[in-house]
């Protein structure tokens, strides 16, 4: 059984004013539309895609921070909901969350020692506070784990650099010894050498504690470096999932192909036409057909099902690259 299993997850947010709704505009935005992923224990799953593809929302949903309109999230067999009951609290111990902006994720008026040990204090409850001394000692241990000296414990967030703040949020995510850490753009805003250090740190942590990572990033080079498998998102759907090596050498979805091309210098970039469509008025059939270079009639009519192309390589496309014959086969079968 995988550590984390997300099945047909749907997240919708209400949108627009009551007047918009009266005029017939859709009253909600579908940010995630039937997303299914699985993360094994000790695995790093990369989640890549453009801004607005729903990467962050998926991460938040797993952390119990988004309203679930459908589908199921299970962590080690327990269902995650946004309802705050006892089960929700035990789940919190097993999930660490790292926000995109490490400085914003730290309270400007809270010393780092308190910030790092906040998960412990929350878990202990308001009625059973942990002594400040104990918290500082634990904070120093956690700081050491992420390679920061113990004098950081008494600092405030504005007294550390972006890279150091990032390490602090790593320490906080690890405080409860979680089984899964959701890292939202952990390398954003860091220069390359600091990025490298951070990725090495995350790798070392994973090796030591067998923690699973859900690694959300738009940086393909980073995804290639640290992940075991990659899921590509487009407009609230997973369009392709594959082992990292396969995905980079042999992308099957035209969107993945375009993403990789856009990032590899030298090759002529096959530019995607136009912008990603609005989440409010989603395209019919395959979401990607409005920008797809190989779209045909069927793409406008029918949403492609998820297809297994090989060992844990799944794609949602009628005409996956290198497997164009699949469609012909299917048509033949239908006829």
């Amino acid at each position: 059984m995988p550590l984390l299993e997300v099945k047909d997850l749907v997240v919708r947010y209400p949108s627009g004013t009551i007047f918009d709704r009266l005029k017939g505009a859709p009253g909600e935005v579908t940010v995630l539309d039937g997303v299914s992923i699985a993360v094994e224990a000790g695995e790093t799953l990369g989640l890549v895609g453009e801004s607005g593809s729903g990467k962050t929302t998926l991460g938040r949903a797993i952390a119990g921070l988004a309203p679930l309109s459908g589908g199921k999230i299970a962590l080690a067999g327990d269902t995650v909901t946004s309802r705050r009951d006892r089960a929700w609290k035990t789940l919190r111990r097993n999930v660490g969350f790292m926000f995109q902006d490490p400085v914003a994720a730290l309270d400007p008026r809270m010393r780092l020692s308190s910030a790092i040990t906040e998960p412990l204090a929350v878990d202990a409850g308001l009625l059973h506070p942990i002594s400040g001394r104990k918290r500082r000692r634990r904070a120093r241990e956690l700081l050491a784990e992420v390679g920061l000296t113990s004098d950081f414990a008494d600092r405030f967030p504005h007294q550390v650099s972006g890279g150091q703040a990032r390490r602090v949020t790593v320490a906080r995510a690890l405080a409860m010894r979680p089984k899964l850490v959701i890292a939202d753009e952990p390398t954003a805003g860091l220069d390359l050498s600091v990025q490298g250090e951070l990725l090495n740190l995350l790798n070392a942590i994973q090796a030591a504690d067998d923690i699973s990572f859900l690694f959300i990033t738009h940086n393909l080079a980073v995804a290639r470096h640290v992940t075991h498998r990659v899921a590509v998102m487009y407009l609230g759907r997973i369009v392709e999932t594959a082992p990292t090596k396969t995905l980079f050498s042999d992308p099957a979805h035209p969107y993945t192909h375009a993403l990789l091309n856009a990032h590899s210098p030298g090759k002529p970039a096959t530019r995607l036409k136009g912008e990603a469509p609005s989440l409010k008025i989603r395209p019919t059939g395959c979401e990607f057909h409005t920008r797809c270079p190989i779209a045909r009639d069927i793409c406008r009519r029918e949403a492609p099902p998820a297809r297994e192309l090989g060992a844990s390589h799944t794609v949602r496309c009628h005409f996956p690259r290198g497997h164009e014959d699949l469609h012909v086969e299917r048509e033949a079968k239908a006829a």
């Binding site: 952390a63 119990g64 921070l65 705050r84 929700w88 609290k89 919190r92 999930v95 969350f97 926000f99 995109q100 902006d101 914003a104 994720a105 730290l106 309270d107 809270m110 308190s114 910030a115 906040e118 998960p119 204090a121 929350v122 878990d123 308001l126 906080r172």
Partner: peptide
């Protein structure tokens, strides 16, 4: 984000009010 982070940890509203 720091309040959202506290929520993700499972902090109650009272704790958020007092500590943040």
């Amino acid at each position: 984000d720091f309040v959202t982070a506290a929520n993700a940890m499972g902090a109650s509203r009272l704790r958020v009010a007092l500590t943040h």
